[in-house]
């Protein structure tokens, strides 16, 4: 498994796999091990339990050039703990990601970063004499832009969560949701 340094989200072609697994010890190792063993690259990965405590959802963004997606999906599905795999079309899904960044900045220029953070609707998490820590939640593309602008000031540390995603509700599903029957 390798992580590519360039921002993938700016490229149109990437695959998001939403993998529903049994919430059991070692499942993440099985999934990660399969990617490594079969020579596939993971770009980002996020894991957490779902509304059903027996199940977890692993959201994997796959480096599209590393291997044919079909093989990845089929091999993944052979894992006994994998219950369901959906490939999310980026155009038909909502994607979110969280970023926290610490920027080195002199007190007199701090206002510029604060302003930038406000424009992006981010949050100020901590302020020091020569540094400021901010957070931003949003679409990966928005985070890319924000990161690029912060870079001009000097990023000390930065962490992104990797994206989580769900299918967009179509109109029909939205209306059903109003009646209290999402999905």
């Amino acid at each position: 498994m390798s992580i590519t340094p360039t921002a993938l989200s700016n490229q149109p072609a990437h695959h998001i796999l939403s993998v529903l697994v049994q919430n059991r010890p070692g499942v993440l190792a099985r999934v990660a091990g399969l990617f490594a063993r079969r020579g596939y690259n993971i770009f980002s990965l996020a894991v957490a339990p779902t509304e059903d405590p027996d199940l977890s959802r692993i959201t994997i963004v796959v480096d599209v050039e590393s291997a044919p997606l079909e093989q990845i999906v089929k091999q993944l599905f052979k894992l006994v703990d994998v219950v369901k795999i959906s490939e999310l079309d980026p155009r038909r899904s909502v994607e979110r990601e969280l970023m926290i960044a610490t920027v080195r900045i002199a007190a007199e220029e701090r206002g510029q970063v604060v302003e930038l953070t406000n424009i992006f609707e981010g949050k100020i998490l901590a302020v020091g004499v020569e540094a400021i820590t901010v957070s931003l939640e949003g679409s990966p593309e928005k985070l890319d832009d924000f990161e690029e602008l912060l870079r001009g000031y000097g990023i000390v540390e930065l962490q992104r969560t990797g994206r989580v995603a769900l299918p967009k509700l179509d109109k029909e599903a939205r209306l059903r949701a109003v009646r209290g029957k999402a999905s």
Partner: peptide
């Protein structure tokens, strides 16, 4: 053992 044999078994459990 389960880590070592993960990629050489159809399934394994501790």
């Amino acid at each position: 053992t389960v880590g070592i044999t993960r990629s050489v078994t159809k399934h394994n459990e501790l």
